[in-house]
Design a protein around this nucleic acid. Sequence first.
DNA 1: ATGGCCTTGGCTCAAGGA
Length: 265
Amino acid sequence: MKIATWNVNSIRTRLEHVKNWLIANPIDILCVQETKVIDDLFPQQAFSELGYQLIFSGQKSYNGVAIFSRTVASEVSRGFAPVLGDTFADLDEQKRVITGVFNDIRIVNLYVPNGSAICSDKYAYKLRWFTALQAYLTALLQQSEHVLVCGDFNVAPEDIDIHDPKGREKQVMATDAERLALQQGVIDLGLADVFRKFTSDAGHFSWWDYRTGAFRRNAGWRIDHIYLTPVLYDCAIACEIDRAPRELEQPSDHTPVIVTLGSWQ
DNA sequence: ATGGCCTTGGCTCAAGGA
């Protein structure tokens, strides 16, 4: 079973890239972020023609998440509120969370806030969002031992996940507070970054700035992750970053990350 | 080097991204 995550930076602009990638990589589940489209305008037919079911949660211009799957989803919900109630309901105005159960695996697809700049309101919002995420995942983990959490986390967990970590303490996506939020909100709950099961060295990235020829220089960050509970982590036989879509004309600035689960149904 | 570049909305510029 193969499951991938990809921040596509507008599903409508990237429609041909995503379609062609799925034809070349006929995986079981694809989680996408930054769809940037309301649900009524989601280009659903293009993907149903390829044999995928879709669930999505979008808004105009910003954010938006979706899950494409070969099998039908059950126990689908959107946002934090269905799990957490009213405490963090204001965070659901931005469409960043969608989940469903597929083949007995609870898939959680996330688009973590960017955070803008360290002194900004958006940075505080990001840290509060991680607090909500911790409560949200804690609740889901009480229901199932088969949980996969993936998406654009907008945090580089370690210095080896940044092409040039010098001065990273002052850079959004790499501050100590963000790393602690990721640690407490995800990793400390028993979820492990499966990419690091197979690859321990530096220089592997999932996002490259559009500016300054960052991709050509491999000046990237590894901010797109797949986290697994222990039973799934043990099943994983590969986790790869596919750089190919980033080489195309008019690419997303992110590229897919794919995990392969062996001996799973 | 606070620049660079891309997407959306519907303005020829601003906001957000990371």
